[in-house]
Computed example of a mutant assay.
Amino acid sequence: MQVTASARPKARDSTTRDMLIAATTQIMVEEGYAAATSRRVAAQAGVKPALVHYYFPTMDDLYLAVFRIGATVYLDRQQKALASDRPLHAFWETLIAPKDTRLLLEFMGLANHRKEIRAEIAAWSERWREQQITALNFIVREHDIDTDEFPPAALAVVIAAIGRTLILEQGLGTVGGHDEAIALVHRMLDRFEMPQPKARRGAQSR
């Protein structure tokens, strides 16, 4: 397909915008949100500083673009994890992915100073949690787990809290008890996911 002249600037615009978002993401993960200034982002992306504000009038606009892309990717990854053969284990793995969690923690720090970003994080957090609880409601029943003893909503909160705490402490250089905590989580998840789901047992018995 032939690319028209009018289409080329749009392609360049998209590429430059993506480069700025990728550069900001990398800086926030590796150096923290305070380091992600317009000049630093421009240098990382290899463009002139003026281009940052051409594509993003304010730094908050850039931060929000970074967050929304990451949030959308994570929502899709979480959905796939919760629909996998071992959903609890897969869900846990999404929570201890260092890059994703560190970026979220940086945004949580940034949210202390930016109301719009705080509202955005809160809205997406509700979407993540709703997806988690919906899936876990089905998962625990499939595995004959007592929902009174292990409420799906509580499981979602506890698993997420442990994963994020581990990443936060690792970022600070604190690792005491981490191996034991991870082993404990794995033992608990193995306990839940060792039995075959009722649907599969029924299919095999037939």
Rank of each mutant, 00 (worst) to 15 (best):
A5D: 15
P9V: 06
P9Q: 14
A11K: 06
A11W: 10
D13A: 11
T15C: 02
T16K: 08
R17Y: 04
I21K: 05
G32K: 04
Y33N: 09
Y33W: 02
A36W: 03
A36S: 05
R39H: 03
A45F: 00
G46M: 00
V52M: 11
M59A: 02
D61I: 09
D61E: 06
Y63P: 00
V66N: 08
V66L: 04
F67K: 06
R68W: 10
I69Y: 07
A71D: 01
A71Y: 00
Y74H: 14
D76C: 01
R77M: 00
A83G: 12
S84T: 04
E93V: 10
T94F: 02
I96V: 12
A97D: 13
P98Q: 02
D100Q: 11
L104F: 05
E106I: 11
F107L: 13
A111T: 08
H113S: 12
K115M: 15
E116L: 06
I117C: 09
A122N: 07
W128G: 05
T134H: 10
I139Y: 05
R141V: 08
E142F: 03
E142P: 05
D146C: 14
F150Y: 04
A153R: 08
A154E: 15
T165P: 00
E169H: 14
Q170A: 11
Q170V: 01
Q170F: 01
Q170R: 15
G173D: 10
G177H: 02
G177K: 00
G177V: 00
A181M: 08
A181F: 01
L184Y: 02
V185N: 02
R187G: 04
D190L: 12
R191E: 13
F192R: 01
P195G: 14
Q196A: 15
P197M: 07
A199T: 10
R200E: 15
R200C: 14
S205W: 10
S205Q: 13
R206N: 13
